[in-house]
């Protein structure tokens, strides 16, 4: 590759970091909130697909992209509600329920989304931050999903809220010691249910950015594992919303390598390059996990790190 192609590749990765990373950001923030309350929702993969379908369908039916975004969030919250309710029953394993929600969300999305393969829905507008440049590649890289700033604000809000608000402290207390919460008269299941539903709503916004921005259509291969990667990201980000932001951008960049290489005319082995985020996730899990101790910063009630 020439120097020019390298620059193009880097620009494409930069743009891709935000474009591909936005769904990662929302799902990992949603998962972060859920896990802070001491419960893991592996079902966010299903939530992502289901909300992408619901958002696309609503945007198409109402011709309003923002109603579509709202519908995606609500659909995500609804599916997460099922997870939260089932997990509130005694003796139920939250990881297993997550697998169930993953299958259910995919099934419902494929079933209800059958008529949505053909039509075009209105798209989330882009913020043109690259208009100062004369280079088409720079402009393309800085077309930013209008949901991205929302995600940015949400990351800051969560980071602040976990330490400075009554709600944030409540969620963390329930996540760190259910017994202490019960002793204070807090409903553990109630707080966890609320955190799971809110997390599902946030993850649903990630679904909207999949089907209404990039790639910007509905099909059954829309997400293959992005939701799951985002769950793993939270472990890597040590349950800190700001680190979730950094990790989401990193994974966005990794996910953009395959398409970027294709766009500069290097198409061989694209299946392998598209699998780069999975390999990166595994590598990071291997490096950050340890069998001797729970991960640093992990909510103490969380099963996934035990």
């Amino acid at each position: 590759m020439s120097a020019h192609a390298w620059v193009d590749l880097l620009l494409a990765m930069l743009g891709g970091a935000i474009r591909v990373g936005t769904p990662f950001l929302f799902v990992s923030l949603g998962e972060c909130l859920t896990e802070k309350s001491g419960r893991i929702n592996l079902g966010l993969e299903g939530v992502l697909v289901f909300s992408a379908m619901a958002g696309f369908g609503a945007a198409w039916l109402t011709s309003s992209v923002w109603l579509g975004v709202l519908a995606a969030g609500l659909a995500g919250g609804l599916l997460a509600l099922v997870h939260g309710l089932v997990c509130s029953l005694p003796q139920v394993n939250d990881i297993a329920v997550g697998i169930g929600i993953m299958l259910l969300g995919n099934g419902l999305a494929f079933y209800l989304g059958k008529p949505l393969m053909e039509p075009q829905a209105p798209q989330i507008p882009s913020l043109m931050l690259g208009d100062w440049s004369s280079s088409a590649n720079v402009q393309a890289a800085l077309h930013i999903n209008a949901l991205f700033p929302l995600g940015l604000a949400l990351a800051l809000l969560l980071r602040w809220g976990f330490t400075h608000t009554r709600w944030g402290l409540l969620v963390r207390m329930v996540g760190d010691s259910a017994d202490a919460a019960r002793a204070l008269g807090t409903s553990v299941n109630g707080v966890r249910l609320a955190a799971t539903v809110a997390g599902g709503f946030i993850a649903g916004l990630g679904g909207a950015s999949l089907s209404l921005y990039y790639p910007g259509s509905w099909n059954e291969g829309l997400s293959s594992g992005q939701g799951l990667i985002a769950v793993a990201l939270v472990i890597f980000a040590r349950w800190n919303p700001l680190r979730c932001l950094a990790a989401a951008l990193l994974f966005g960049a990794a996910g953009a390598v395959g398409p970027a290489l294709q766009s500069v005319g290097y198409g061989a082995a694209y299946q392998l390059f598209n699998a780069l985020p999975y390999a990166l996730t595994l590598l990071i899990l291997l490096l950050t996990c340890s069998p001797q101790r729970a991960a640093r910063g992990a909510p103490m009630e969380l099963g996934v790190t035990r």
């Binding site: 594992g225 799951l228 793993a232 699998a275 595994l282 899990l285 340890s290």
Partner: peptide, 20 residues
């Protein structure tokens, strides 16, 4: 050996296998 959650890692390995 590393304490990596097997539910997540096995599904990631599965995606990798399918890509391969």
């Amino acid at each position: 050996a590393r304490g990596v959650n097997e539910t997540i890692s096995s599904l990631l390995l599965s995606y990798l296998a399918i890509a391969l």
